[in-house]
Simulated assay, not measured.
Amino acid sequence: MRARGSASDGCSASGCRASCGPSRRAARPAETLDALLMSWNRTAPEVARALDIPPQTARRRLRRLEELFGERLGDPAFRFAALLALPPARRPRHPARDRRPPDEDAGI
């Protein structure tokens, strides 16, 4: 396991906060919430795959979201409003949804 701020990860003691500190960490709840809202089954493994993080990390983040939002996470109206409130740039790309049907007029 690599220590935080080690020279091997490009973080120095003084520069770590600027490059990978609070701003990146502050984005994690939004990224996790977005992955949860975009998932079908709302499971930690599914969220972990969407974010490319270990399932245990996803579970920890999901528990934090549960602490913040409680039962509202199960409310469809809240989920829809939260999805609309999140910036689109944070939305993970879903290859299956990004595929367009073949253009029928393309061969003409």
Rank of each mutant, 00 (worst) to 15 (best):
M1S: 15
R4M: 11
R4Y: 09
G5K: 11
G5V: 11
D9L: 06
G10P: 05
G15V: 07
G15L: 13
G15N: 09
C16A: 15
C20F: 12
G21V: 05
P22W: 01
R25C: 06
A26G: 06
A27P: 01
P29A: 07
A30R: 07
E31H: 11
E31S: 12
T32E: 14
L33S: 11
T43E: 13
T43N: 08
A44D: 15
R49M: 02
R49E: 09
A50M: 13
A50W: 01
D52E: 15
P54W: 12
P55C: 15
Q56W: 02
Q56P: 00
A58W: 03
A58D: 08
R60H: 06
R61W: 03
R63G: 14
L65E: 10
L65R: 06
F69W: 09
F69T: 04
R72K: 15
G74M: 07
G74I: 06
D75K: 03
A77V: 14
A81D: 08
A82Y: 00
A82Q: 01
L84V: 05
A85W: 02
L86N: 00
P87W: 01
P87V: 02
P88E: 07
A89P: 03
R90I: 02
R91V: 05
P92E: 11
R93P: 00
H94I: 13
P95E: 05
P95S: 04
A96N: 06
R97W: 01
P101M: 04
E104G: 05
E104V: 04
A106D: 10
G107P: 06
I108K: 08
